[in-house]
């Protein structure tokens, strides 16, 4: 990850950058992904490292992040998880399954009226803490919830 590029994207504003990219023919409309895929975060094996690389280091615990997930998942291959952030000014959200071989699941950036809510289905290798992190007002917040897995969803 190039820190200059990150700073540029942040300062220029995602909308402006994408508009320029479209205008200059770098990106075709309909395929305007704002940033390169964060392989450093997605390939990290340690949960703290994955969270740091995803930009959510030093997150404060907050019960204003509501996580919905089953207490016990019979099938770790498909575990429904949803999260809502009640922290004002939430701009992004990321999901981690701490005991997975690579803990980072996904990250989401909200704009133009998107509510800070995501529902998805994740893979869980075994019983683990499911952690959700958000950014709001330039600060990081997190909450977590344990899901017991009876049959793992990763590995053969």
């Amino acid at each position: 990850m190039n820190p200059l590029r990150r700073a540029f994207l942040k300062n220029a504003g995602v909308v402006g950058t994408v508009a320029v990219a479209i205008a200059t023919g770098l990106l075709k409309p309909g395929a305007a992904f704002a940033a390169a895929w964060n392989s450093l975060a997605f390939t990290a094996k340690d949960p703290a490292e994955a969270i740091n690389n995803a930009g959510y280091g030093g997150a404060a615990e907050s019960s204003d992040i509501m996580i919905k997930a089953p207490d016990i998942a019979e099938n770790g291959a498909v575990v429904p998880v949803s999260a809502t952030s009640n922290i004002p000014g939430t701009t992004s959200m990321a999901f981690f399954v701490e005991k997975n071989p690579t803990p980072m699941i996904a990250s989401f950036e909200f704009s133009n009226g998107a509510e800070p809510y995501i529902a998805t289905r994740v893979k869980m290798a075994k019983t683990s803490v499911v952690r959700v992190t958000v950014k709001a007002g330039g600060k990081n917040y997190t909450n977590s919830r344990e899901v017991k897995v009876t049959i793992g969803g990763c590995g053969g």
Partner: peptide
């Protein structure tokens, strides 16, 4: 754009997304 997401292989097969 309202949502810009990056996914890893930890999203379950035949992905579901709600927003």
């Amino acid at each position: 754009t309202v949502l810009d997401a990056q996914w890893g292989g930890g999203i379950a097969k035949n992905p579901f997304l709600g927003f």
